[in-house]
Amino acid sequence: GGHPVTTQMVETVQNLAPNLHPEQIRYSLENTGSVEETVERYLRGDEFSFPP
Rank of each mutant, 00 (worst) to 15 (best):
E23S: 12
P52W: 08
A17H: 04
T32Y: 06
E37C: 08
F50S: 04
I25A: 00
G1M: 13
I25Y: 00
R44F: 05
D46E: 15
E36H: 11
E30Y: 11
P51L: 05
I25K: 00
V13G: 00
L16H: 10
E30F: 09
P22S: 09
D46G: 05
N19V: 07
Y42F: 10
G33C: 07
V5K: 02
Q24V: 04
S28Y: 05
Y42N: 00
V35K: 00
E47Q: 13
Y42I: 04
T38F: 02
G1C: 11
T12Y: 15
L43V: 09
T32H: 04
R44A: 12
Q24K: 04
R44D: 06
H3P: 09
E47G: 08
N31W: 13
L43Y: 10
P18S: 07
L16F: 12
H21N: 08
N15H: 14
H3M: 10
H3L: 11
L16V: 11
E47C: 09
Q24H: 02
E37F: 05
S28L: 07
T12H: 14
E40C: 13
P22Q: 09
D46Q: 09
G1Y: 13
M9T: 03
L43R: 11
P4W: 15
V13N: 00
Q8P: 06
G2E: 11
G45E: 03
G45D: 04
L16A: 10
E40V: 11
Q14M: 14
E47D: 13
I25E: 03
L16E: 05
F50Q: 03
Y42Q: 02
M9Y: 02
T38E: 01
N31P: 00
Q24N: 01
G45P: 01
L20S: 01
E23M: 10
G2I: 13
T38D: 02
V10A: 04
V10E: 05
F50K: 01
E40A: 14
V10D: 01
E47A: 13
V10W: 05
V39E: 04
N31C: 12
P18D: 04
T7R: 10
N19R: 09
Q14Y: 09
Q24E: 04
E30W: 11
E36P: 07
R26H: 08
L43M: 12
R41N: 09
G1W: 13
V5G: 03
R26G: 03
T7I: 14
V39D: 03
Q14G: 07
L16Q: 09
M9E: 06
V5E: 04
P51E: 04
P4I: 15
T32N: 04
S34F: 03
S34V: 02
L43D: 06
P22I: 15
E37W: 05
E30T: 09
S49M: 15
E47W: 13
E30N: 06
V10I: 15
V39S: 05
V10G: 01
H21Q: 09
V5A: 04
R44L: 08
N19I: 07
V35I: 14
E11M: 13
P22R: 10
Q14L: 13
R41C: 05
S49W: 10
V39G: 02
F48N: 02
R26T: 07
L20V: 02
H21L: 09
G33I: 02
P4G: 12
P52N: 08
G45Q: 04
N31F: 15
T6E: 04
E11V: 10
S28V: 04
H21R: 09
Y27E: 07
L29K: 00
Q8T: 11
E30A: 12
N15E: 13
E11A: 12
G45L: 01
P4N: 14
N31M: 15
R41P: 03
G1S: 13
G45F: 01
E30D: 06
D46K: 05
G1L: 12
N31T: 14
N19H: 11
D46W: 10
T6V: 05
E40R: 15
P4V: 15
N19Y: 10
A17L: 13
Q14K: 12
H3T: 11
L43I: 10
R44M: 09
S28T: 04
H3S: 10
E47S: 14
E37T: 08
Q24Y: 01
R44I: 05
P4D: 12
G45W: 01
G45I: 00
S28K: 01
P51M: 07
S49T: 13
T7A: 14
I25H: 00
L16S: 08
P52T: 10
A17K: 01
N19M: 12
Y27V: 08
E11Y: 09
N15W: 13
T7C: 12
V13Y: 00
E23L: 12
P4E: 13
N15R: 14
P18G: 06
P18V: 08
M9V: 02
S34C: 04
F50R: 03
E36V: 11
L20R: 02
N31Y: 13
L43N: 12
E11N: 12
P4H: 15
P51C: 03
E37M: 10
E23R: 04
N15L: 15
R44W: 05
R44P: 01
E37Y: 06
E11L: 14
Y42K: 00
P4T: 14
T12E: 14
A17R: 01
E11W: 11
N15F: 13
S49F: 14
V5R: 00
T7Y: 11
M9S: 03
R26Q: 08
I25G: 00
Y27P: 02
L43Q: 11
E40P: 00
N15I: 14
S34Y: 01
H21G: 06
G45R: 01
G2F: 14
N15Q: 15
V35T: 06
T7M: 14
E11I: 12
R26I: 12
